[in-house]
Simulated scan of single mutants.
Amino acid sequence: MTTAQSAGAEEPRWLTDEEQRVWRAYLHATTLLEDHLDRQLQRDSGMPHIYYGLLVQLSQAPRRRMRMTELAKDVKITRSRLSHAVARLEQYGWVRREECPSDKRGQFASLTDEGLAVLKKAAPGHVAAVRQAMFDRLNPEQLRQLGEIMRVLAEGLQPKDANADLPWLR
Rank of each mutant, 00 (worst) to 15 (best):
M1Y: 05
M1I: 04
T3P: 15
A4H: 08
A4C: 04
S6H: 15
G8K: 08
A9E: 07
A9G: 12
P12N: 09
P12M: 07
W14I: 03
W14L: 13
W14H: 13
L15D: 00
D17C: 10
D17P: 15
Q20V: 06
Q20N: 13
Q20R: 15
V22H: 10
A25V: 09
Y26V: 10
L27T: 14
A29W: 12
A29K: 14
E34Y: 02
D38S: 02
Q40N: 13
L41F: 01
L41D: 11
R43M: 02
D44E: 07
S45Y: 09
G46T: 04
G46K: 06
M47H: 07
P48G: 01
P48C: 05
H49A: 13
I50G: 10
Y52I: 11
G53R: 14
V56M: 03
Q57T: 04
L58T: 05
M66W: 00
R67C: 03
K73L: 12
K73C: 15
T78D: 04
R81T: 06
L82P: 11
L82C: 09
H84Q: 12
R88A: 12
E90L: 01
Q91G: 07
Y92G: 12
V95T: 08
R96V: 07
R96A: 00
R96I: 12
D103L: 12
D103E: 05
G106D: 00
F108N: 14
F108K: 10
F108H: 00
A109G: 07
D113N: 06
D113V: 02
G115C: 03
L116Y: 11
L116T: 09
L116I: 07
L116N: 04
K120C: 14
A123S: 03
A123W: 10
H126M: 10
A128C: 01
V130A: 14
V130I: 08
V130E: 03
M134P: 09
M134L: 04
F135H: 09
D136W: 03
R137A: 05
N139P: 11
L143D: 01
L143A: 03
Q145R: 09
G147S: 11
R151V: 10
R151A: 15
V152A: 10
E155I: 09
L157K: 04
K160G: 15
K160H: 13
A162S: 03
A164P: 06
P167G: 07
W168L: 09
R170S: 00
R170E: 04
